[in-house]
Design a protein around this nucleic acid. Structure first.
Length: 306
DNA sequence: CTCACGTAGAGCGGTAATTA
DNA sequence: TAATTACCGCTCTACGTGAG
């Protein structure tokens, strides 16, 4: 695992990585509580089969603005290189923001996979590493550490190294899962889908209605017993105020005051009925939408296909 | 702490389905 | 047929989540 601190070597590494087709990247940020957080480390991996992190390069770019710009120019802004991050929007804030091209986010990938395929309580990188990639000792203690100090400790470098290994591994596994979900509607077996639907529909209804009932009872019970929080169940009570005016008053006010109030108002069926002459005398903005609606009829017990 | 998205829940309006 | 009910989707807001 090369830990690069010399500007020349970092520059050379950037040039090398600029030739890659895909890179797995993670960053560490110093002074993140302050108004001016600084990029501390950029960890890069070009080989997803490296589970120990031997091939990870850790670029020490603390206060090395020119090297960061070089990284942004040659790698982040280069659309020919796919860059994979976990929670990419966070890292991109320090690596070129909107200039970044061809960026993949493992957090977004994981969130798109339905829960029944990937049943995780959250999509933190550590969780993906442990439960999706089966890494055993995932270290999280350094996450809140101070990345502005030098020299960095062995534990910090180890953490920084493994993080990007987790990104690469999680990315590989997520790719496999999402490929399974890419199904061509033209070749779907509709009969098999309806059968599967009927199979789980009853179980789902039983659980879903009980869950909703429990929630309702909890809300009422917590409100009347003045329990605002218990075992992770939090009750919030809000009041909402709405304001309305008579349309005539509003129209009169706008006309008299000369305010520029130009926005479309939906002509509901009711309004169209009330004032059919509007449609003839005022230009109307019209759009049409197509709604696909799936109706699922009741099924008799004896006719159940299973 | 910050920042950028997500998401849940409630109100509302429109339409389909059901009932008188 | 008209009135009522059920359901769906949109919008707004509060809150959650992930990174370090």
């Amino acid at each position: 695992m090369p830990y690069l601190t010399e500007p020349d070597r970092i520059s050379q590494a950037i040039a090398n990585y600029a030739q890659a087709k895909i890179l797995w990247i993670d960053t560490e940020i110093a002074d993140y509580q302050s108004k001016k957080p600084r990029l501390s480390l950029v960890q890069v991996l070009d080989d997803p089969t490296d589970v120990k992190g031997d091939r990870v390069a850790i670029l020490d770019v603390l206060d090395r603005t020119q090297l960061i710009d070089e990284f942004i120019d040659k790698i982040m802004a280069n659309p020919a290189i796919e860059k994979v991050f976990h929670n990419a929007s966070f890292d991109c804030r320090f690596l070129g923001r909107s200039r970044a091209r061809n960026v993949t986010c493992t957090l977004e990938m994981a969130q798109k996979i339905p829960y029944y395929i990937l049943p995780l309580s959250n999509y933190k990188l550590a969780t993906l590493a442990e439960q999706l990639c089966h890494f055993s000792k995932v270290n999280k203690t350094e996450q809140g550490g101070d990345w502005s100090l030098r020299p960095l400790t062995e534990q910090q470098l180890e953490y920084a190294k493994m993080d990007v290994v987790y990104v690469a591994c999680a990315h590989e596994r997520l790719l496999q899962l999402s490929q399974r979900l890419q199904i061509d509607p033209a070749t779907e077996d509709i009969a098999a889908l309806t059968l599967r639907y009927r199979h789980i529909e009853h179980r789902w209804k039983v659980l879903d209605t009980e869950l909703k009932h429990l929630k309702e009872r909890l809300k009422q019970a917590m409100a009347t017993q003045n329990v605002s929080e218990i075992d992770g169940f939090k009750l919030s009570i809000q009041e909402r105020k709405h304001k309305k005016v008579a349309f005539n008053d509003l129209a009169k006010f706008v006309q008299e005051s000369g305010i520029e109030l130009n926005f479309p108002i939906r002509l509901t069926q009711e309004l169209q009925k009330q004032m059919p002459e509007i449609i003839e005398n005022i230009p109307i903005e019209e759009d049409v939408e197509t709604i696909l609606q799936l109706k699922i009829s009741e099924v008799e017990d004896e006719n159940l296909p299973f």
